[in-house]
Each structure stands twice: as C-alpha cells, then as structure tokens.
Computed example of a mutant assay.
Amino acid sequence: MEPLDLIDRKIVAELMRDATLPVAQIGEKVGLSQTPCWKRIQRLAETGVVTARVALADPAKLGFGLTVFVGVEAPDHSAEWRQTFLRAIDTFPEIMEAYRMAGEMDYLLRIAVPDMAAFDALYKQLTDAVPIKNITSHFAMERMKYTTAYPVDTRNR
C-alpha cells in the first residue's frame, strides 16, 4: 500500500479524535467537500487503515476498577502452545490486549477486572487452561495518560 497523503492523514487524525463528527465537518477541517471526504473515509476503511469506529468508555464507571498488566513466560515456543494460549486468552473478555514480546517476557496482557478477587479468579482459570512457565502481574494504581489516537503527522511537508 502506498503512503497516505496529507489529506488522508488529516482525515484519520480527525476520526481518531472523534469518529462521531459528521462527514461534512471532517471535510471542512481537512479542506474537502462532503462527497470526496466520504469517498476517502470509505477507501481508508476498505484498505484497512481505519479498522473500526467505536465508542470509548470509562472503565471505572463500568465497574472495571483494576487494570493489571501481566507478563507471561511460555514453557516452550511451539506453534501448538501458541495456538492453545491464543484460544485460552480469547475466552476471557477481561483480557483487553495481548502482545507477543521480545525480551524478558514472551507475552504481555492488559486485563481489566472489577477487583482483586476477580483477577484472582481469572488468574486461576487462565493457569488451569494452559501451561505457563511464569506469570508476573503488575497492578496499575493510576492511569496517568491514555489515548487510542496514533500521532499521525498532519503537517504539510
């Protein structure tokens, strides 16, 4: 895929900031009329640049007061173990993100649960579902910065 031009980058930046904006308003911000802007948004979605338009919610107001970052060390690095692990983590909606890592841990999970008891229950279910060599849990005390918007360059070069 070819690099995005300045207008596409501006459209993506606006959508990441607020996907509820009317197309006409996005077009106005990026210097396009409504129809060409809509066509670009559709193309950005069709090419997979824009993968979804969602509402973001406050986890605490939904009852998810505890965020846990969990480092997982795999007992082996076989395709079979990875598939078993992936199937297992897919069964837990509380596991919000999962990354295969380079470095000291093999996988990093971001987990959102109501409290420590809920995390303990999830921990037990996960370790019963798949063999794990080591787990290290880190409990977030305060979310100091959070964004879902990537720092897209919207400068004219």
Rank of each mutant, 00 (worst) to 15 (best):
D106Q: 02
D120E: 14
G63K: 04
G103H: 06
K124N: 14
M96F: 12
A112E: 15
Q25G: 01
T136Q: 14
M1T: 12
T47G: 00
T147E: 09
T47Q: 13
I132K: 01
R17C: 05
E104R: 04
R40D: 03
W81S: 04
T91I: 02
D58L: 11
N134R: 15
E28Y: 10
P59Q: 06
N156K: 10
A112I: 11
D18V: 08
V70G: 00
G48K: 04
P131L: 06
L62R: 07
W38E: 14
Y150T: 15
Y150H: 12
L6T: 09
G48Y: 09
P151N: 09
K29M: 09
G48M: 01
D153M: 03
I26P: 02
I11Q: 00
W81F: 02
K39Q: 11
R100P: 02
E28S: 07
K10D: 00
P131Q: 10
C37V: 02
Y150C: 14
V23Q: 02
P93G: 03
M1R: 12
T154H: 11
I41F: 06
V12C: 03
R110F: 06
A102S: 08
T154A: 10
K61S: 07
L122H: 03
A102D: 08
T20S: 13
T148E: 15
R82H: 12
D8I: 07
P3R: 07
D18Y: 11
F69T: 04
T84M: 05
T20V: 07
H138P: 00
I111A: 06
L56K: 11
M116C: 07
L62H: 05
D153V: 09
Q83L: 11
H138T: 14
S137N: 08
R157M: 07
M96C: 01
M144I: 13
D115I: 10
Y107S: 00
F64D: 06
G48L: 01
P131Y: 11
Q83M: 12
E28L: 11
D5Q: 04
L44I: 03
V113H: 06
P93T: 03
V152R: 08
T20K: 12
K10V: 00
A129T: 03
V54F: 09
L109C: 02
A149M: 13
L86D: 13
V113S: 06
P114I: 04
M1Y: 08
D115E: 14
F64N: 02
P131N: 11
T127S: 08
I111N: 03
Q34N: 15
R87Q: 08
D106V: 02
M16R: 05
E80Y: 08
A74G: 04
F69G: 01
R143E: 15
K61W: 05
I135K: 07
K133Y: 07
